[in-house]
Design a protein around this nucleic acid. Structure first.
Lengths: 192, 192
DNA sequence: TTCATTTTGTGATTATAGTCACTAATACAC
DNA sequence: GTGTATTAGTGACTATAATCACAAAATGAA
């Protein structure tokens, strides 16, 4: 049996060219299908993070609450792995929140099952490593944007490199993500 | 034979609790001792990145040249792995430079040898994954600093979380690293 | 469809850090 | 030890984006 959702997961993992059919099947076996309604929390700060999510449909936001303000640090769209790695890897209470910004469907992979996969064979370790390399390269890009681009250039960065975000995430959250005041981003867009 | 330098490497890797004596010995076997004089480049933008360095002594800087300005993105001190992962993992020409900011000694591990280790056993893959998790958590912290802290708070961040940088890296480079004008950082420090 | 909530737009003002220009101090090479 | 490089400090000024306050629009639920 291959549902559309499983094929989507397969396609994403196949980019790394590591798992064969049997390994993918093992991966899938430990995934649980989960749905979230808009504004539902997948992870609440203060709690431990117990796993990762593969987004089938919808969008998930990662944010931190800093003096009453929601500081968005990432967004996860269709076919991406939503993750908060600090708490997951160090097993300390999370300072961050994962929230469904829209109605969302996902595959959930618990930390326990993930660690079992890592133990099972080198292929899963390799997949984990490659995924982390990929995530790290993205994260470095964001850091660069925040470190050195002016507001207008940050907006252009979204246009050019993250058009899906621009299309699907409210400006308010994007401003937070880019380290700008909402009004600033609104004015930049108005000028175009 | 165990030199002081090898013990330093061993201690750093032992934090991850993965390699046994024989595996560490395999790791060490593929390391080359390399020295760099002040201002010598370990990686020049435009070139391919062929490996990683473990800093035995000295400091290494990672920067990008953006309209004539050196934009420092990281510093690597004693007992840290100096890396530029984008070019290393994607095998595209590097946009970044690695430079010895002081006279530096290091162990060099080539990409080829690294990949051989990854193939050799699951322990090396796991070490790679854990190292990446660690690096990613640090990188997320920097992003947070750049996204949401005011100049004064950024300086405090260095004081509290990166005192070694504050001690050993010129203010000019630290300002770049923190996304601030050199003068701003200088004034902040003067106020203390 | 209507009402409440969320999201966006925009003007006026202020705070803040960037830039420029120059001096001082420190480090480093010969 | 002298001279050159690099690094740091500081005042004056300017540009820029944050903040505040409010209105408008869009979205979503009942």
């Amino acid at each position: 049996m291959h549902t559309k959702d499983e094929i989507s997961l397969r396609k994403t993992l196949d980019k790394f060219n590591i798992l064969n059919d049997s390994e993918f099947s093992d991966f899938l076996k430990v995934c649980e299908y989960k749905e979230f309604s808009k504004k539902e929390y997948l992870l609440l700060s203060g709690n431990y993070n117990h796993g990762v999510y593969f987004v089938i449909s919808g969008t998930i936001g990662l944010f931190e609450l800093i003096n009453g303000k929601e500081l968005y640090q990432n967004f996860f769209l269709e076919s991406e792995f939503a993750n908060e790695l600090k708490s997951l890897t160090t097993q300390t209470p999370s300072t961050k929140n994962l929230i469904a910004l829209t109605k969302t469907t996902s595959f959930y992979l618990s930390r326990t099952k993930l660690l079992e996969l890592y133990d099972k064979s080198i292929e899963f370790e390799r997949l984990g490593r490659k995924l982390l390399e990929h995530i790290l390269n993205s994260q470095n890009e964001i850091s660069y944007v925040l470190q050195s681009l002016k507001p207008e250039e940050r907006y252009k960065y979204l246009e050019n490199k993250k058009p899906r975000l621009l299309k699907s995430i409210p400006l308010t959250y994007l401003a937070s993500y880019l380290g700008l005041a909402r009004e600033t981003l609104s004015r930049i867009r108005a000028k175009k």
